[in-house]
Every structure is written in C-alpha cells, then in structure tokens.
C-alpha cells in the first residue's frame, strides 16, 4: 500500500489556506473545486484524503481527485449531503478555505506493477481513483492492461465526463461505462457496474483491482470479481466513515479493530470484508 509522505504531527493538525481557482459543476449536486496553496504545495499519493475546512462552517474528509504530479493545483470533488459539503458546493473562485492533510494509505499502485490494473468506480467513487488513473497512465509501461469500469445511476449522474471521453479515445486504457437506468437515446450500456465484470478483458489471475463507490456496490463488485476468479487479496476498496482528527487519536472513524483514517482509507478486501456495511460506532 502506498503510504503518505511523513509530515511532522504539528503540520498534520494545522490547516493551511488555499485559494479556490476554479469550480466545475459535475452534476446537479457534485462540484470539483481546484485550489492553490498560499504557501508551498504538499505532495499526496493517489487515494489519500484531506480535511477540508470551510471557515465558520466546519470540516469534512474529502479525497484528492487531481493529478498527483501537480500538487500545486489540488482538486476535491464534493457531493452536497450536509452543512459542510453544501458550503463547499457553493464556493466561488477567489474564496479561501483551509486544508490539512494528506492523510491515510493510498492505492497500491506499486504492488500492481506488471499486472493488469482494473479500476471499478461507482458514482462519485471515480473521484478518489482518478489520481490513480492519472498516475498509472503517466507510467503506462509499468502495467499490463489498464481497464476502467464506471457505473452511475443515470447519464446525468456521471462525473468527469471530459476525462471519460478523453480516456475512451486513449488506446492505453480500456474504458467501459454503464448506467443503472436511462431514457431512450442514451447510446451506452444500461445495467449496474457489476454487469461489466464478466465481460471486460483482463486476466483474473494477474489482476489488481481498485474499487470505490457506495459500500453495497463494492460488496457486489467483490463478489463478481471472486466469481470471475480474482484473488480477494488483490482487490482493494476505500472506506468512509465520519472523521474528526484524521490522525488516529479521537476514535471517530473506528470500524471494528481499524481506524479508517490511520489504517485506511484503502484496504485489501480480506482486511475489511467482514466490516463492509457495519454501522458507525
């Protein structure tokens, strides 16, 4: 698993000012916010998250969704579900927010080298795997096949459409998109993301799979991968629970024996198979 660059504890707990440079509306309730640091940029690895602070409102854990090669332009993709995420959705260019991080273990890209890399994303779940896709494409020769399987509730719930169009035209990655339902006129596939798993060409015995989406979707995906013959130890998921400190001290994110912020958010399937779907403590 890729581990965060070590930062002094004081740095980990202090939020730094970032200025919003662009706000891109992805869907009716999801935006991507690009921010630039007022000080030095801080590197992150794909799969890590930040604590993003809207001054006067509060903090939320949000995964980085930008290219790790350009930490000076950091992006977060946020769905409005409550106070903080709604405030983040309403930000305008020029606004200043606070960010501390990055935190947690990232996607195991190094362990996937020489193997087929399969990425399964549901809905906004494409955001936390996007940095991994960009990093894998930047070192394309290190992987065998790269396949991206994307599912969304409907065509209007698809995020990063420009990327999907670009990657579909890029022969270095095999992109498959499906939606749960659509009205006539949608020319793509209709069906849940797991319907893609038996069809997409990859070698199940030599594949590493990264999956991100709602927990039920990841559970069904794990099952479909097992049926296809993928070793569960080669399947990685990223989990979400409420976070407070993000550094393993407050216990808010505890799930069974693990602290998601410190031990995750990326886990190998066998580490958390029994915990998927568990309620918060």
């Amino acid at each position: 698993m890729t581990v965060a660059p070590e930062l002094p504890v004081s740095d980990l707990l202090t939020s730094r000012p970032y200025v919003v440079s662009t706000v891109r509306q992805q869907t009716h309730d999801i935006v991507t916010i690009d921010v630039r640091p007022e000080g030095e940029p801080i590197a992150f690895v794909p799969g890590q998250f930040d604590m993003v602070y809207v001054y006067g409102t509060g903090e939320a854990a949000i995964s980085a969704s930008s290219d790790p090669a350009t930490p000076e332009l950091l992006s977060h993709t946020i769905r409005a579900v409550g106070g903080v995420t709604q405030a983040l959705n309403e930000l305008q260019p020029g606004a200043t927010i606070g960010i501390r991080g990055p935190y947690g273990r990232g996607w195991p890209l190094a362990a996937a080298e020489g193997r087929d890399l399969v990425i399964v994303a549901g809905g906004i779940g494409l955001a936390p795997v996007r940095p991994a896709i960009l990093a894998a494409l930047a070192q394309r020769e290190r992987f065998s096949r790269i396949a991206l399987l994307v599912g969304a509730r409907s065509p209007r719930d698809l995020v990063f459409r420009d990327d999907l169009d670009r990657w579909t035209a890029d022969r270095r990655i095999d992109v498959h998109v499906t939606v749960d339902s659509a009205v006539r006129g949608w020319s793509g596939r209709v069906g849940v993301v797991t319907t893609l798993i038996p069809r997409v060409p990859f070698d199940p015995e030599h594949a590493t799979v990264l999956t991100c989406g709602p927990e039920t979707m990841m559970w069904f995906t794990g099952e479909a991968l097992r049926k296809r013959g993928v070793d569960p130890a080669q399947v990685y998921v990223t989990l979400e629970r409420n976070m407070k400190c993000a550094v393993g001290t407050c216990g808010h994110c505890q799930l069974g024996p693990v602290f998601l912020c410190r031990d995750g958010p990326v886990f190998a399937w066998p580490e958390v198979a029994d915990l998927l779907g568990e309620r918060e403590l």
Binding site: V81, G122, I124, D157, P214
Partner: peptide, 12 residues
C-alpha cells in the same frame, strides 16, 4: 439497482 436508487440522497 434498487439500493442505488434508495441511497440517491446519500452519497452514491
């Protein structure tokens, strides 16, 4: 599919 539509108002 059903779970996806139930969880629509949460994160999906």
């Amino acid at each position: 599919q059903l779970v996806d539509s139930w969880t629509h108002d949460r994160r999906a």
